[in-house]
Amino acid sequence: MGNQTITPGPVPAAATYKRSGKSRIEPTLFHTFNTVFMILLVVVTLYPFLNTIVVSFNAGNDTIRGGLYLWPRQFTLQNYKAVFASGTIYDAFLISVARTVLSTVLNIFLTTMLAYTLSRREYVFRKPITLIFVLTMYFNAGLIPGYFLMKDLHLINTFWVYVLPSMISAFNMIVIRTYIGTIPESLVESAKIDGAGEFKIFWRIIFPLCKPVLATIALFVAVGAWNSWFDAFLFTSSRQELSTLQYELMKLLSSSMNANSNPAVANGAGMTQDAAVSMVTPLSIRAAVTIVASVPILLVYPFMQKYFVVGLNVGSVKE
C-alpha cells in the first residue's frame, strides 16, 4: 500500500491521475456488480417460494401443463379449500399450533428461571448445575437410547413426547444467563431488602427485563417446534390424530417423490377425492400445505430481525 502513495520518478502527475481515475471508476463498477449480485440473490431466494405460492393458487390440472412461473394462469382457492376440508391436515395444523405454543411457553419460563438461579453468584450449586447443563451441549446419547427412554417413560404415542424432551436448552440458558449478568445487581439486592422471595424477584423483576433476549429465543424455540417432523415420524406415527403439519407435509412430499409406490399415490389421491374437486392434484395440495406451514413464521421473523444479533452474538462469545 505504501509504495502506491509514494510514486517516485519523473511522472508523478500521471501516477496521481491514474490513481484518482481508478477510484472514480472502481466504485461504480463495483456497485453495479454488487447490485446485480444482490438482485440475483434475492431472485434465487424468493423465486422458488413465490412459484410455490403461484402453484398453490392455480388449478391443479392446469399446473401439470407446466410453464407456470410468477402468475397463476387459472386462479383458484380450491387447493386451500381442499386442504382445510381434509380433516387430517386441519387436525395436524391444530396439533402443530398446540405443541408450538406449549413448548415455547414452557421452554421460555423454565430456561429463564434456571438461568436466573445460575446467575446468582452466591448460589451454592451454581457451578455443578451449570456444568451438568453445559455438558449436554456436547454429547448426545443417540437415537436408539433416546427412543427407549421415551418408551420406558410411556411417552410414545402421546402428545407429551413433542413437549417434554425439549423443555430446556443449555445453549439458550447460557444466552439468557449472560443477559441477566448485564442487569444491575442492585435491583435484586433492593428487592431482597424489601423482603421479596427469590421466585418473586425472578418473575417480577428479572423476567420482564429480559424481554429483548427472550423475544429472540422464543422465536427460535417456536420455529424449532413448528418445523420438526421427526418426532412425529418416530414416536407418534401410529396415531394419526397426533400427526403434525410438517409430518403431513413430509408424507405428501415422499409420496410425490416416489410417485410409483402405490400407498403413497393412494394417499395423495385420497385427499383429492375427499375434496371432490378434480382440479386439485397432489402437487397443488402440497404447494398449499407448504404455504400454510410457512406463513405463520414468515409473518413474525422480519420484526425480530434487530434482535437476532443479540441472541447469536452473546451465545458465541460466552463471556
Partner: peptide, 22 residues
C-alpha cells in the same frame, strides 16, 4: 436483502427439500 436472505433459514427441511425437488 438481509431480511429476504434470512427467509429460507426459517423454513423447515421438509419445505426446503420440497422446494429443491420442484
Amino acid at each position: 436483502v438481509q431480511t429476504i436472505s434470512y427467509l429460507p433459514h426459517f423454513l423447515s427441511w421438509v419445505i426446503v427439500t420440497g422446494i429443491v425437488a420442484t
